[in-house]
């Protein structure tokens, strides 16, 4: 069994796979990658199953040393990547020699990156998943000086491959979103704001949710608890807007104004505090 050692862990580095869907009814958050598209791309480039575990890295600033030869790839958010004396690009397969150090600078673009390995990460599997979730898994995050065990694959992947362009580009395209159950309770002015207003990501964000700067003052009645999902846009009683993310609780008592589909969740996760975006309201079959 081989190990990689995190000399510098960055702000929040975790192991993520596709989470714990079988345990939602017991109140267990789904978990899984904040940007699923980039996560799936990492596994795809490593010719692995879509459900395999990757390292999820928030904002970069990482140094890790591998104790055996292997291949890795990074997708999603991007910065400078170097290994040994060479530099590499996002989505490019990186051959790592024994005892070589892989260094990621702070990310220049996006927030969340995925590191897949040609082989597999070995870590505790709790309720059918390796995804870290504090108090379910022993660890909530990887700290500097800690190690991750892995098994390198026997066969290496040929490096002569067409390059895949980096997928995370800060774009100003509006985020597709669907109207939530409480949308129709808003005044037409408030509905119009959601349709065409600009929203700003606040600093208050983590794997559970992202708070927006803008508020919608309202006097809607209190609700009884309903299911919520990653991508649910909640309106709190004080008028705050919160977009629930992958580690969100499974039920909530706030009004649900919008629901983001998978892709929008990933796009939003890569925007940084202070960045602005708009929603594009979509229709569903009746």
């Amino acid at each position: 069994m081989a190990k990689l050692r995190l000399e510098k862990s960055g702000i929040l580095t975790t192991i993520q796979d596709l989470g714990r869907p079988a345990y939602s009814a017991l109140g267990v958050p789904l978990s899984g990658p904040m940007d699923k598209q980039s996560f799936l791309l990492a596994n795809h480039l490593m010719r692995k199953s879509p459900a395999d575990a990757c390292l999820e890295i928030y904002m970069g600033n990482l140094e890790m040393v591998f104790d055996s030869t292997c291949q890795v790839v990074l997708t999603g958010a991007s910065g400078e990547i170097s290994c040994g004396s060479k530099s590499y690009l996002t989505n490019e397969i990186i051959p790592v020699q024994k005892a070589e150090k892989l260094t990621l600078s702070g990310f220049k673009n996006g927030q969340w990156a995925y590191l897949a390995i040609n082989g597999s990460f070995l870590s505790e599997n709790i309720m059918g998943s390796q995804s870290y979730y504090p108090r379910i898994t022993e660890k909530g995050r990887l700290n500097s000086g800690e190690e991750v065990h892995y098994q390198a694959a026997e066969h290496s992947i040929p490096l002569l491959h067409a390059k895949v362009k980096s997928s995370v580009v800060s774009n100003s395209d509006p985020l597709p979103a669907y109207r939530g159950p409480s949308f129709s309770l808003l005044s037409s002015d408030q509905q119009h704001r959601l349709k065409s207003g600009t929203f700003t990501l606040s600093r208050e964000q983590n794997r559970m949710g992202i708070h927006l700067e803008e508020k919608i003052a309202h006097s809607l009645p209190e609700m009884i608890t309903t299911p919520v999902y990653p991508g649910t846009v909640q309106l709190t009683s004080s008028g705050k807007l919160i977009v629930l993310m992958l580690d969100a609780q499974v039920t909530g008592g706030y009004h649900r104004l919008l629901q983001l589909p998978q892709r929008s969740i990933g796009t939003l996760s890569q925007l940084r505090p202070g960045e602005k975006f708009r929603f594009q309201l979509m229709d569903l079959p009746e």
């Binding site: 869907p21 079988a22 789904l30 608890t225 309903t226 569903l284």
Partner: peptide
């Protein structure tokens, strides 16, 4: 079904991706 859970009076059904929602409804 990917996952299914409920609150007091709402049953939420998350489908495995790629199905026709109108058919399910």
């Amino acid at each position: 079904i990917h996952r299914m859970y409920h609150g007091y009076q709402v049953l939420g059904i998350v489908l495995i991706e790629g199905q026709d929602l109108a058919t399910r409804i």
